[in-house]
Design a binder for these strands. Structure first.
Lengths: 379, 379
DNA sequence: CTGAAAGCGCTTACAG
DNA sequence: CTGAAAGCGCTTACAG
């Protein structure tokens, strides 16, 4: 009951043993007679003693804590990632310290310094663009694993998805529907994910002639994506006759850039927030999806099956990625050797209803456009 | 450069001063001559010395760490809340330890014990249903502030929104449109938020006669809400004639419960996930919103303005709530006296397009139903 | 303006 | 099976 300040010593004194014996009972190390053990347990209970992790960490020169640093916890992708890592690490005795950096290398640095001061066991990081993490830094964070993005040039295990292939598959899908002008609304130019997805996108388009690929870099937010998409759509003919506040569909506006183009008829969204921005921009322009503009998102979100049409996406295996990152960290902490470099967890193209042939423009009246049934999802 | 193991002593030795002098330079406490100061700084730089937070915390018997314990970080509401708290606390030197408890009191207890072992400065908690937190526990967590939900009977400051009033306003809105059978798809029965919202709901209905209020408790997830909503809608007449796979609209199915009812014509969703579930159930039943079922959500989400119709919501001021909770904690940590009890941050009813008169059933052909313009939002 | 000593709570060798 | 001693890295009084 003496809540005054129970320590390993107060417990030891009460039982008439040494502090090390209490420590042994606490940690299950060494040999302790059953009788002593029971007495110690009773005293712990009586005093309401709780071990102090700080004393323990100081002695061990290591804190059983793993930092999780992401670009934006407001993005559901990162929230799910955190949850998956937490789930994998729960029960292992590690505390998770979640940190946000707004994709800003300076904030990332500040957060890393804070983490480092605890002498953590490990760090799972989605490096910010232009990440400040250097090879010299690495030991300070114990074991380091990167997720989603890679740390170019650093000897760190990484968990990623097949960016090139899956964005390539999305582009291929759109091409197969007859789209000739396709836009990728991408993330920050310097992010490894952006570069990889852009490569996959361009490679897929390069397999054919007469195609035009447009890439717009954004900050990855809904607002940023909406602005980029709106600008691209401004070269499109006005709203279709059936839309609200319709303008003459025959009056093709001249391309702002001087290209002989009527603007993209299909868009790929970099993440769920960007996809929101694209859908919003399409609506704001008075255009319809998929009749006027086809959309494929990257990373699934709950609203996408609710939307009409349901949004087709490249479903990124967030949970698996987080779980694998957690496991790699656990392996490293257990002293196992883990080779640096990327582990690829494949994404899946989920066809729903947001892709149609551009020829369907003004043809399909209102309801669902049939998609080649391959993986139908949701209700 | 000697990355071997820089401590306050190695720095002191290099400069030829005592450890305390280094400590003084580090903390800006006491008086240090400019010359000594510069020399210490130079040695710190040269050795790549970083203070060890563990040693500091052990001496201070307090760790500059604030725990943030929420029910489910996968729910965007909590992710936003965490972000708001983090933003408010950033720059204060406190680390945030985010913890999840899946709304399970046992997991909550385990997480709390882990946090407690660090001797944290504070805790911002969304108590789980049946929270294990007791008055005797409180001191172990330093300063405690609850958010969203309250800790009944504990002397803790809380930040909440005006549950009763805002749900009451939503119910009133639906009543004014002529709905006589309204359902509240609520959260866990024992959560303080559920109880308060339920009270507000029932009070609003009690002001009139001939109304029927239905409350369904769920686990607050999309799946749970969808099941509850689907069950309620199963007593509704089948899909309208214009819907897909239509059944005869005149064939009213008998009420499963024996009530002479055709099921609710309006639903209020407990949180954004529940609202997703409701919308999904309406679609799955082949019904339309708002023609067949009106919907008002609680807590805004990005997809709601994108949806057709855009979903009307009680917009909960998440950012303000998180910021206020953060501020209260900072005040407490600064030694200011903060009275226990709730602080109420009001929510706002945002009218979009998911509410219509039940009389509109089968009348309004397809497009938007005009809502009384009061607060139009989004694009 | 600066330093010698003690101690925060624990665990790690080292002895018995 | 158990204990005395030392030390993890830092800061707090207390002296000068």
């Amino acid at each position: 009951m003496a809540e005054t300040k129970a320590t390993i010593y107060t417990v030891a004194r009460a039982v008439g043993v040494s502090a090390q014996t209490v420590s042994r009972v606490l940690n299950g190390t060494g040999q302790v007679s059953e009788k002593t053990r029971a007495a110690v347990l009773a005293a712990i209970e009586a005093q309401g003693y709780r071990p102090n992790a700080v004393g323990r960490s100081l002695r061990a020169s290591r804190t059983p804590m793993v930092g999780v640093l992401v670009a934006d916890i407001g993005n559901p992708f990162y929230a799910r990632l955190h949850r998956a890592i937490e789930r994998r690490l729960s029960g292992s005795g590690y505390s998770l310290m979640l940190m946000n950096c707004d994709d800003d290398a300076r904030i990332e640095r500040r957060q890393l310094e804070l983490l480092r001061s605890y002498r953590p066991t490990g760090l799972v990081i989605v490096p910010s663009v232009g990440s400040s993490l250097s090879a010299a830094d690495l030991p300070a964070f114990g074991h380091v694993v990167s997720v989603s993005r890679v740390l170019e040039g650093l000897p760190v295990p990484a968990v990623v998805t097949d960016e090139r292939e899956s964005v390539g598959a999305a582009a291929k899908e759109l091409i197969s529907y007859g789209h000739t002008e396709i836009a990728l609304i991408a993330g920050p130019q310097k992010a490894s994910t952006t570069r990889a997805r852009e490569e996959g996108f361009r490679a897929a388009l390069a397999r054919h002639t007469g195609l035009r690929g447009i890439v717009r870099h954004t900050d990855g937010t809904r607002a940023g994506a909406e602005a980029a998409a709106a600008e691209l759509l401004s070269t499109r003919p006005g709203p279709t006759a059936t839309g609200p506040s319709a303008t003459s569909p025959s009056a093709t506006s001249p391309a702002a850039t001087g290209h002989t183009t009527t603007g993209p008829t299909a868009m790929i969204g970099f993440n769920a927030l960007v996809t929101e921005g694209i859908v919003s921009a399409i609506m704001a322009a008075g255009l319809r999806c998929p009749e006027d503009v086809s959309v494929i998102g990257f990373t699934d979100a709950g609203w996408m099956t609710l939307h009409r049409p349901p949004i087709s996406v490249i479903d990124q295996p967030v949970e698996e990625m987080g779980a694998l990152a957690g496991r790699l960290l656990l392996d490293l902490a257990a002293g196992e050797s883990v080779a640096p470099g990327p582990r690829v967890v494949p994404s899946t193209l989920v066809r729903r209803g947001s892709v149609a042939s551009p020829a369907a423009h003004g043809v399909t009246p209102s309801a669902q456009v049939a998609a080649p049934a391959a993986k139908e999802e949701g209700s």
